[in-house]
């Protein structure tokens, strides 16, 4: 397929693509828990919902303030270890959401 046909094809699909991401059908399901998607960035090393016991520190069930404060302290550690670098990637509000979500996991 050449560049032009490809562009054309993209343009033709665009309205459908937009329509399908902007669905506003009625729903009876509960909204996903706040912070879950953000916290899922922790799962690769700390297990699903922070419950792993095979690797790095278990996070599930720690108090929200404990997780929040620890992540905030990590931001200023020099030289940064890997987790210290990660902590620098989130705003205070995002860290709060992550900490709240993980603290509720049992």
């Amino acid at each position: 397929m050449n560049q032009k046909t490809m562009r054309l094809r993209v343009l033709l699909w665009l309205p459908f693509a937009l329509a399908s991401t902007c669905v506003t059908a009625q729903t009876t399901s509960a909204a996903p828990p706040a912070g879950r998607l953000l916290a899922s960035n922790c799962f690769q090393c700390h297990g699903n919902n922070g419950k792993s016991n095979i690797g790095f520190e278990r996070l599930a069930g720690s108090s929200s303030s404990e997780i929040y404060n620890e992540l905030r302290e990590m931001r200023s550690k020099v030289p940064p270890k890997m987790m210290d670098m990660h902590a620098r990637g989130y705003s205070d509000a995002q860290i709060r959401l992550i900490a709240d979500y993980l603290s509720k996991q049992r």
Binding site: F43, Q44, C45, H46, G47, S52, I54, G55, F56
Partner: peptide, 10 residues
Amino acid sequence: IKWFNTLMED
């Protein structure tokens, strides 16, 4: 090695 194990578990 720990990271590998947890990542593959996830």
